[in-house]
Amino acid sequence: MIPFARDGELVTARFTPGERELLEALARQLVALLEERAAESPADVLYAQLGIGGPSAPPLDPAMARLLPDAYRGDAGAASEHRRLTELGLVDRKVANALAVIRTVSTKVAVLDQGDVQAWLRHLTDLRLVLAARLQIEDDGDEGNGDEGMLDLYDWLGYLQGTLVEVIE
């Protein structure tokens, strides 16, 4: 059953209690990963308030490296400078998206305004990027490393995202 339905400017989402628990747990795990990454940066309060002064090297974890990619290829200096100025802001926005999902999925029928829909779309993408890295899905057609449960979850999140795009179009 398609969980999303359009209601004028709003989108409603209906999930089973188990699905809601799962989506909330995944969002919390992603927040933890992102906060762990943010904590690696030097704690300069003034820079942090401006959302700059973050790390200059990409994350070592391939999943986080895909969530927070270099903005330049083949120019390590420019990539590093850009990352230092923008990564904390990007992390903050990804955390905010996850928190919006946690907030809205807590009710039996989630009512999503346009901002919530954007948060859901981005967050579902982020979850799938992390799972794909864990499953070692690197090229079109890759079917993962054999973890069937994780692959099912990856496919289900893709189904959710695909149907959410269809519903808002």
């Binding site: 270099d70 903005a71 330049y72 990007l90 993408t125």
Partner: peptide, 18 residues
């Protein structure tokens, strides 16, 4: 272009500028 790349990373797309 830096702003666009950052926006693409918000969406989870893999983008660079050159």
């Amino acid at each position: 272009m830096e702003r666009h790349v950052e926006a693409m990373h918000d969406f989870g797309l893999w983008a660079t500028l050159a």
